[in-house]
Design a protein around this nucleic acid. Structure first.
Ligand code: MN
Ligand code: MN
Ligand code: ZN
Ligand code: ZN
Lengths: 133, 133
DNA sequence: ATCAGGCGTGAGAATCATTCTCATGAACTC
DNA sequence: GAGTTCATGAGAATGATTCTCACGCCTGAT
């Protein structure tokens, strides 16, 4: 059952570890290629999917629908504040919101409840570079 | 500037008004075709986009990435509890969450803040029909 | 009501992220 | 080290959404 340890899988994990921000599969593929650690695009997708299934990476959808991946510091459930320009991310805890979400959903007779809570904004750096123009 | 009133646009709005649940553009297209009010798929997409821009419909992304549309009762900002099987929707108010979201984001120096807060589950009806099998 | 010009329409092509196919090569077991 | 199994990758396929552009329907002015 354990995933086989290959050069490609290792390269993907290492790239994620060095990156602090949410990145798309395509971006990661390009990053790996630039480093010479070339990995097939399909393999990047497969590695990311496996990592997501194992809860080793978090996945979220950008506004344009593209999936973004990140190796977060915490393994526990949490949420994110993400810069929509550069992907910079702050991990967020929301005990208040957690309680609110499950209460509201249960009150309506819904089961198998999940919630999507993500905050998007422009980080201080991206605001600064936009002002420069 | 005002959008021209055409048979197609009217048909899309009417279909949305009769539907209580979130539906995809493809589903709406099929519904219209079934009624004989046939409308081109590209036109359905354009009508929905125009309505979304005018805040006449809410848009959200299903877990598979497909966009879902709904004409909600309230025009004001709100969130949703949606059945992932049939699209059944309950509109949700979250004053607590609103305050929490803007405070958290501002504390991190982020601007132009938006939030995505959606609840997904299985509604009572869909749970019942799943049990039947 | 008519007319002209502009905007909306729709069939099909194009786009683009993601997934699939399948022949080949690299891990792990013994 | 040999054999079995699973991962890889190039390219094709998929599927939602957008684009193209020739044609026709709204609409405001006459
Ligand atoms: Mn949560
Ligand atoms: Mn809100
Ligand atoms: Zn930024
Ligand atoms: Zn349901």
């Amino acid at each position: 059952m354990a995933a086989r340890m290959t050069r490609q899988r290792t390269a993907v994990v290492e790239a994620l570890d060095e990156l602090a921000d949410f990145r798309s599969a395509q971006q990661l593929h390009e990053t790996l290629r630039a480093r010479g650690e070339s990995v097939g695009l399909a393999t990047v997708y497969r590695a990311l999917q496996a990592l997501a299934d194992a809860s080793e990476v978090d996945v979220l959808r950008a506004e344009d629908g593209e999936s973004l991946y990140r190796r977060c510091a915490r393994r526990e459930h949490h949420h994110h504040l993400v810069c929509r320009h550069c992907g910079r991310t702050v991990e967020i805890d929301g005990p208040t919101v957690e309680a609110w979400a499950s209460k509201v959903a249960a009150a309506q007779g819904f089961d198998d409840i999940e919630h999507t809570i993500e905050l998007w904004g422009t980080c201080a750096d991206c605001r600064a570079s936009a002002a420069t123009k």
